[in-house]
């Protein structure tokens, strides 16, 4: 068994202070949220604001419970989650491989550069009608939009990560007689891991934007559909509930990426 390290009194006080500061920050975070919810609830129940327009925490909770009881919650959440995760995975995978290809060939990189710049600047929503005609109006179209939104960002982020590989380390490997494949495997891929994690984090947001935007345009189910439907029939409790569920799902997905980051690059 590992011995417990022996610390001086000053160091223990310092550690205690650090812990206290961390607890205080967390407590204030929770307090701010609680205060916000209480004020919102009070404002709605005392009719300082119109609860039909602003909804309230209790109405949102009741709406989510209602969705759960009539069996719709799971189906809507699953639909959006599936579209988001599939779109995210395809964008990340294809983006990573394309960036690798662009790193490998300078000529290919130079040819692709103007196309990437234009595609990155293009608002993807403009392609909506075309996508509906090409792919149809089902989940496939939503996944397609999600991929389109995340792909260029993934390529540009990863290419940047690959190109930032330390030239001296490349020189070192070359002096050992390393092939380009070995430089890629032993140096470029591992050294670009922070860029990969950063790209994952950015793409979590992009994937949600893509799937919700897609659902606004073509869906019959999903969180985006609930938001559009709620807005059209003036069920603003439903809109707020959907946004709340979306916040929770996005936070969970981001937390998973943050956990991966912690596990993968703990020694750097």
């Amino acid at each position: 068994m590992k011995d417990k390290p022996q610390y001086t009194k000053e160091h223990l006080l310092y550690l205690r202070g650090l812990k206290r500061k961390g607890l205080l920050v967390n407590a204030v975070r929770v307090a701010v949220l609680a205060l916000l919810l209480i004020v919102w609830e009070l404002a709605a129940s005392l009719e300082w604001v119109n609860p039909f327009i602003t909804s309230s925490p209790s109405r949102i909770a009741a709406c989510i419970a209602d969705l759960y009881q009539n069996g719709n919650l799971g189906a809507h959440v699953f639909t959006t989650l599936w579209e988001t995760v599939v779109g995210f995975c395809i964008a990340v995978g294809v983006g990573y491989l394309t960036a690798l290809l662009l790193w490998w060939s300078e000529v290919f990189r130079k040819i692709a550069e103007p196309y990437l710049v234009v595609l990155n600047a293009l608002p993807k929503i403009a392609l909506g009608p075309l996508i509906i005609i090409w792919v149809g109006t089902g989940s496939k179209a939503i996944v397609f939009i999600t991929v389109l939104i995340g792909l260029i960002v993934a390529i540009l982020n990863m290419l940047n990560g690959f190109m930032e590989t330390d030239e001296n380390k490349i020189l070192l490997l070359k002096s050992m007689g390393a092939s380009k494949w070995q430089i890629l495997k032993k140096l470029v891929i591992p050294s670009s891991l922070p860029a990969f994690i950063s790209m994952l984090k950015i793409n979590v947001g992009m994937a949600w934007i893509g799937s919700i935007m897609g659902e606004y345009m073509v869906s019959k189910a999903g969180i985006g559909y609930l938001i559009v439907y709620g807005g059209q029939v003036f069920k603003l409790d439903l809109v707020m509930s959907a946004v709340f569920i979306l916040c929770v799902l996005a936070a969970v997905m981001y937390a998973i990426v943050a956990l991966v980051e912690k596990l993968v690059i703990k020694n750097r």
Binding site: L171, M176, P190
Partner: peptide, 26 residues
């Protein structure tokens, strides 16, 4: 054998793995 201005050890590898790097390359 080439030694550069900085040590250029790979931060994601342990010292042992860094020492074995030329053997892996060759």
């Amino acid at each position: 054998g080439y030694m550069l201005q900085k040590d250029e050890l790979f931060p994601w590898r342990t010292i042992e793995k860094n020492l074995f790097l030329p053997l892996e390359i060759k």
